Amino acid sequence: MKREHFRGYNPSAMSKAYKAVIDDKLPLHSAATSYCVPYETLRYMVAEKIVPACSNLANMPIFTPEEELILMTRLIEMDELGYDLSRQEMANIANDYAIVLAQKTKDCMALSLTWFRNMLRRWPDFKAVSQRAFSVARTKSEYKGIIIKFFNELEKTLLKFDLIDKPHLIYNVDEKVVAICGKDETVTILGCGNAAGSSLPPYFILPGQRMNDKLLDGSPSGTSCSVSKDGWSNSEIFMDFLCNHLKKKCPR
């Protein structure tokens, strides 16, 4: 039997075929034929539990023009303040933004560098900025301007939120990744202190799948802990740190 070749397929049709197999129990061959999608691709997605709507993000604009403008404006502001973000870090910011806007879910495949490069094509000015070389000469020549701009923006923020005379409410957070002796695993420690000189108890991120309160045995009073697959921080864990650690333990 001659095998039919598909030059391409409609992502929406693949989603419908996938749903028909999973929800309606339609046989794979019938679903592939009915929705004109490649049988092998559909079979693979069903077998690996890959939701088509989540897997086809490489070329799809998922933000509205207004949402994309907000994202790019923020990235440009960060660049002007001296943040030396990599392409991957910018793609991660876009991915978190999409989740907040409910344009995708946490279970979907993360936005890739290919997706980010496709978005940059609509922003040629920013593309030029993001690709420029941060040479030693350039860094030295712009360093003073970047520092001045940073502190100008800091002053605006302090005035906006009435924090000029409240050093006890101005916090700095940093993270330190340490290797577990004798194991190929890491632990991340989030440390936090304020401009008045006080510090909060540490927040640990341990490698694992499930949190166990016994992991905190012997730790300083007030210590919090979370787990991630590799012991590294991520945006979800950082939000937990802000809401359930910093917010609850910082003085009012």
Rank of each mutant, 00 (worst) to 15 (best):
K2P: 15
F6V: 02
G8N: 12
P11E: 08
P11D: 07
A13D: 06
M14K: 06
A17I: 03
K19H: 13
I22N: 02
I22T: 07
K25T: 00
L28N: 13
H29I: 11
A31F: 02
A32W: 06
C36K: 15
C36T: 10
V37M: 00
P38A: 03
M45E: 08
K49Q: 09
P52F: 01
A53M: 09
C54E: 07
S55Y: 14
A58V: 09
E67I: 01
E68I: 03
I70N: 05
Y83S: 12
L85T: 05
S86E: 12
Q88E: 12
E89I: 01
M90E: 09
A91K: 09
D96H: 14
D96A: 14
L101Y: 14
T105F: 11
L120W: 07
R121V: 06
R121I: 04
R121K: 15
P124K: 00
D125A: 14
V129S: 07
Q131Y: 06
Q131D: 14
Q131F: 04
R132T: 02
E142S: 11
E142D: 08
Y143R: 15
K149D: 03
K156R: 13
D162K: 15
I164P: 00
K166W: 05
H168Q: 15
V173G: 02
E175Q: 15
E175H: 10
G182R: 04
G182H: 04
D184H: 08
T186Q: 06
T188C: 03
G193T: 11
N194Y: 11
G197L: 07
S199T: 04
P202T: 09
L206N: 02
G208T: 08
G208L: 06
R210Y: 08
D213H: 07
L216W: 00
D217G: 02
G218Q: 05
P220G: 08
C225G: 12
C225D: 02
S233K: 04
I237N: 03
N244Q: 10
N244M: 04
